[in-house]
Structure formats: structure tokens, C-alpha cells
Write a protein that binds this DNA or RNA. Sequence first.
DNA 1: GACTTTAGTCGCAGATGGTGACTAATTCGC
DNA 2: GCGAATTAGTCACCATCTGCGACTAAAGTC
Lengths: 223, 223
Amino acid sequence: MRDRSPRTGSFSVDLVLVTAMRNELAVLLTRTPSDRERWSLPWRFAQTGETLDAVAARCGQDALGEPPGWMEQIGAFGDGRRHPSDTDVSVAFVGLVPHETASPHAGFTWFTIADLPPLSPRQRAIMEAATRVMQGRLDQAPIAFRLLPATFTLSELQQMYELLLGKRLHKASFRRALQAASLVEPTEEWRSEGRGRPAQLFRYSPKKKRRLHRAVRFDFLYP
Amino acid sequence: MRDRSPRTGSFSVDLVLVTAMRNELAVLLTRTPSDRERWSLPWRFAQTGETLDAVAARCGQDALGEPPGWMEQIGAFGDGRRHPSDTDVSVAFVGLVPHETASPHAGFTWFTIADLPPLSPRQRAIMEAATRVMQGRLDQAPIAFRLLPATFTLSELQQMYELLLGKRLHKASFRRALQAASLVEPTEEWRSEGRGRPAQLFRYSPKKKRRLHRAVRFDFLYP
DNA sequence: GACTTTAGTCGCAGATGGTGACTAATTCGC
DNA sequence: GCGAATTAGTCACCATCTGCGACTAAAGTC
């Protein structure tokens, strides 16, 4: 069997930039060049000799002025159709940016997850995969800290995890796990937020630790 | 070699086909077209309108006669260089095939993991990512059963898991987890394998179950 | 001062998971 | 025939993990 039409196929690099705005997740979109009425994820073509990560970093730089602090590839997405960059395949990345330092360049706008404009099927799939990958990384890499300022209260940290995971966490359990991982250390500062007892500020400060080795876990529900 | 940017870039679809041969993992390789002395992963170009999964399935079909029972995308790999399919990017997939039904077509050969020929840096990276992804899926999808015949002993199943995970498992713990997941059911048959007590044969038969919901786990060691 | 609100901690009870030791059934050597 | 060796399968102990409710602490509000 030979390929009937041995074309190599074309690809672009699409970037899902996520931030936390007023207790909601938001994604950076830009107007689609070919149809200024529609919105799409920021994307770039690869230049010769450029790695994929470099393209994604450049894409983030062009949108926000600096590349995101954390970024990871989601995968390649092609549904047979070409949209919107007119490529066969989008190599997609997720990136996280603290909202304070995230002032979009002209033509880029933050949209909260709950209030997204219509997107192409491919970009919709990319967004879903982005949240899946990001949530899966939450317990393997300190990416939640990327969305917070240098010092923060433990309640703020927990709220960030709840936001990213999309579910509530128990306060005591959260702090116990945090303690066991020796991920944060207290500062001397406290913050009084109107009502209630003032909260101590913490900073991210990971200690060396050994990875817990689990055997197998059968954790699937479909046949 | 045109190097005017922006270009759209080109891609191929590369497939890591894994099987279990005599208690060792093996990967299917083919001779590199441009240099028949070297070996490389089987790959295909996308045809117009074809999804990426379809390309990978076709690639497996061309190599073994039928597409692998389980397959998943690993990601896109581009190091800036073009090799060996002369594309900028390889969209890579892993697939699992039982060795019994896996008779390679002409030009394809199984190589055990321990005895691989030299590969290009990109393909080496793909292989490493393939084992990572496959091991990560082991507790989320019943992929180990794809490498076994329809009925099997629990010792065989455990050996398969040990092979795929690359580490030993404790017999009692393994069976306890298996029981809790209600993944297998006993048949009426027994198999006597020379020495020792005969083993009962089991078949894969998942029951409905609800996914265990864990909160956060901080499971990372790097800063 | 009583009440509300938020921060932070304690400790129990049940689930999870590693482990060694045990029993069961077969083959092999003699 | 009989004991040793070998493989299958199970049990029970115990340390850890984890969900969770209840508690104390410190601020503001009325």
C-alpha cells in the first residue's frame, strides 16, 4: 500500500494560555485573521530549526510580552479539516500565567471559561485536552504556584487548587498533604482581609523529597 | 531547502508498536528508506481528510495486517532537525499488540528493548515517551490485557504488569487490587505448567464501578 | 459582650497498601 | 511411596493515608 497523495501535511503551534481572574479561569483568545468576527487560540508557524517548545514560547511572548512560566505540550490535533490556521494539524500547548503580570497585547483578550465565544471543533477539543493535561499535572508539578504571587495565604492556595481542579477540597486534608510534601514555608507576615482572623503568608519553598512508589492501581471504569 | 519564514512545517505520523516476546518487551522497526543500513519506527504521511488516529491505525495495519487493539497518541516531536522521514515534526503514537497474532509483514522486525539498534535522537525521545505514556495508562485502562490471550493465569497477568512497569510486584497486593477492581472472573479451566500447583484460568470481565475520587496529592520532587 | 467570619489544628475511623507467613496442589528425585 | 522442590493462592498484621467533623484562635460587626 502506497500513499496515494504523498503530501507531508502542514502544522501550526496553538497555545492555550490560562490565568485566574477574580476566582475564575480565563483563556487568552485572539481574533481569527480570516474572519475577524470569530475568535481563536493564539498560534504561530514554526521557523526553520526551531523546536516546538520554542515556537510555543514565542507564541506566548507575542501575546503577553513574556513566555508563560510553565508550559507543556498537549498533543497534536487534526480532525481531517483545516481550521483556522489552514493547517492539517495543530500542535497544542498549555501555559499558565499569573493574572497580575498578564496584560495582553493588542488583539488578545481574556475570556472566562464559563463565557467562551464559539470556537472551531478542533480548538474546542484542544481546550478540553488542555484542562485534562493541566489537572493531571497538578499533583506532579508545582504549577498552581505559577498563578499566585510570591507570597500567599494557604486559603488562597487552596482556592487556586479548587479552581484548577474544578472541585472543593477539605481544608484540613489539603494542609496536611501540603505539610507532608514540605512545599511551602511560612513568612513573618500576616494579612488581615477584613473579617475573620488574619492569615499567615507563605512562600513556595520545596524541600528535597523522595517520590512515593506505588505499585499498581486499577483505577478505570470503562470496559 | 527553503528557509523563508513563516513556513507551515511538515509532519509525519510515527508509530511505536510494542509487544511481549518471551518475557521481554519488543518494538517493531523497519529499515530506513533513505539508508537501508539503519532502522527506524514505522511511519506514514497523512492523506487528505484523514484524522491522525486513522493514519496511525493505517500505519499499524500496513506493518502487521491489522491495527493494534489499543493505541494512543504520545505527542508531537520536533527537535529542529529533520529525520528520518525528512519532516519537521513526528506525531507519535504507541500501540500494543499480542505477540501471538503479531506476524510482521516483510521489512518489519521485532527488536527487544534491551537490544535496540541505533536510532535517531528524535526516535529515541519518542521511544522514551512511549514507555512513559504506556506506563502511565496502565492503571487507567486495561491495556495489559491486550497483550495476553483471552484466558490467562493471574501469574501471567502479574508478569505482564511487571514487564510493562519494569518492576516487581507483590503477589498478594496485586491480587487484592485486582479483586477490588473486579476486573477478572475465573473460568472453569485450570492449567498445569509442569512444576507446581495448577493455576486457574481467568478472563477479563470488568464490572461497573465508580471511580475513586482522591483530592490533591503533592507528588513531585523537583523545585 | 454576643455573634459572625475566617484561619488554623486535632484526632478518629475507615480505606489503602506493603509484607511475611501460611496452606494447597502438583512434579521430581530417589 | 515419600519427601523435597516448585508454583498457586490466601490470610492477617500493621503502618500509612485520607475523608471528615469538631474543635480553638483571632479578627470584625452590631
